[in-house]
Simulated scan of single mutants.
Amino acid sequence: MEEKILKVLAEKGAMRPGDIATAAGIDKDEAGKVIKQLAKEGKIYSPKRCFYDIKK
């Protein structure tokens, strides 16, 4: 699931968690948990409130 989320962000840029889940074809609640974990690990960040993007 992490790979799907990272791939979507790499292709589309900053997005909201719900949009990331839709684009990746995964459940919104599960996506939210993975997004929080990825942010904690420093793989993604929040450029502005409620948006996430991949660290470049």
Rank of each mutant, 00 (worst) to 15 (best):
I44W: 00
E30C: 12
E2G: 15
K40P: 13
K40Q: 10
K4P: 14
G42T: 03
S46P: 15
G13C: 06
K28F: 15
I20N: 02
G25E: 08
E3P: 03
I5Q: 06
E2P: 11
I54M: 02
T22S: 10
I5D: 10
E11M: 08
G18C: 05
A14W: 04
I26G: 13
G13W: 01
K12E: 14
S46C: 14
R16D: 15
A21R: 08
L6A: 08
E30M: 07
E41Y: 07
A31K: 03
L6W: 04
P47Y: 00
A23D: 02
G25M: 07
E11C: 05
G42L: 08
K33F: 11
F51K: 03
M15F: 03
Y45A: 04
K33V: 10
A23N: 05
E30T: 09
I20C: 07
D29S: 14
K36T: 14
E11L: 12
R16Y: 08
D19M: 12
D53V: 05
E2Y: 06
R49S: 02
A21L: 10
I20Y: 00
K55A: 13
T22G: 07
A39K: 12
K33A: 11
C50F: 07
K28A: 15
K55E: 15
F51R: 02
G32H: 08
A10I: 03
L6V: 15
M15Q: 13
Y45L: 05
E3D: 12
L38S: 09
I26T: 11
K33W: 05
A23V: 01
E30Y: 05
K36I: 10
C50K: 11
A23W: 01
V8M: 07
L38M: 04
K7G: 04
T22M: 05
G25A: 09
G18R: 04
E30K: 06
E11G: 09
D27P: 15
Q37I: 07
G13P: 15
M15T: 03
R49I: 00
A21Q: 10
M15R: 06
F51H: 12
A24V: 09
K36N: 14
V34I: 12
K40V: 11
E41W: 07
G13T: 00
K4R: 13
G32C: 10
D27R: 02
G18K: 04
K7A: 14
P47F: 00
K28V: 15
V8H: 02
P47T: 00
C50L: 12
E2R: 10
L38E: 02
V8E: 04
V34N: 11
C50N: 15
A24Q: 06
V34T: 10
I5K: 02
G18L: 05
K12F: 14
F51A: 01
K40F: 08
V34D: 10
M15D: 03
